[in-house]
Simulated scan of single mutants.
Amino acid sequence: MSSEGADVYLRHAIDVDPVRLERLLWIVVALSLVGDVVTTFAGLHLGLAESNPVARSAISGYGLAGMLALKAVAVALGVACRPLLPRPYRVVIPAGLALPWTIATLSNLVLISTVV
């Protein structure tokens, strides 16, 4: 039994230029970062608590500036590590940033909807 035909089909079905995919994912990073920050502060305003101890400390000590600095450090680390990866694998960096921030945004929205 051969999987050669399936492999060819899959390669063509999801054939995406890595450069375009990376650009798209950086846009998702920006949107998810903004979404996480906005929904976090909306939730805090409604009486919810930040569950991430590092973010909680940054927010309690420095407010919005602390949260933005924390996000900036994460993005800066990602950008700094990006050249260390071969070009086809560089999409991992923005995907690794966007995924948890998107999940956090969605989680925040669900929690906010329970108190509104």
Rank of each mutant, 00 (worst) to 15 (best):
R90N: 12
P88A: 02
L84H: 06
R56S: 14
T102I: 08
D17K: 08
A65C: 12
L111T: 15
A72N: 07
I27P: 11
N52E: 01
A95W: 10
M67A: 04
I14N: 00
S107G: 10
A55G: 11
I112D: 12
A95V: 13
R20P: 13
V28M: 10
M1A: 10
T114Y: 13
F41N: 08
H45L: 11
Y9W: 03
G61S: 12
C81E: 01
L10P: 00
F41C: 10
A69F: 02
P18S: 11
A6W: 09
G47H: 05
A80D: 07
L64F: 12
V79H: 08
I27F: 09
A74G: 01
G78R: 06
P100E: 06
V91M: 10
G61M: 10
P83C: 01
A58G: 02
A6H: 07
L77V: 13
S57H: 14
A80T: 04
E50C: 01
G35S: 01
I59M: 09
P88W: 12
A74Y: 00
M1L: 09
V19M: 09
G35V: 04
G66M: 04
K71F: 04
A13E: 01
G66K: 02
P86L: 01
L99F: 12
R11W: 00
G35I: 01
V19T: 15
T105Y: 00
E50R: 00
L106F: 15
I27G: 10
R11L: 00
W26N: 13
L85C: 04
A13M: 09
W26M: 13
A69Q: 00
S57E: 07
V38Q: 07
L44K: 15
R23E: 15
V29R: 05
P86V: 04
L106P: 07
G43V: 13
R23Q: 15
R11K: 03
V37W: 09
M1C: 04
L48C: 05
R87S: 02
A65R: 11
G35N: 03
V116M: 09
L21I: 13
A58F: 14
W101P: 06
R82V: 03
V54H: 14
L77K: 03
A42R: 15
M67T: 03
R20W: 15
A55N: 06
L85S: 02
L70Q: 02
F41L: 13
R20L: 15
D7K: 00
Y62L: 12
A69N: 03
L68F: 05
T39V: 08
M67P: 00
G66W: 06
P18V: 13
P18A: 11
P94L: 14
I27V: 14
G5E: 06
D36I: 00
E50P: 08
L24H: 15
L44A: 14
P94T: 14
V79L: 13
D15T: 05
T105L: 07
R11A: 06
R20G: 15
N52K: 02
W101C: 10
I59F: 09
P88D: 07
D36H: 07
A55Q: 11
P83R: 05
V28R: 04
W26I: 14
V19H: 07
G63T: 10
L10V: 02
N52C: 05
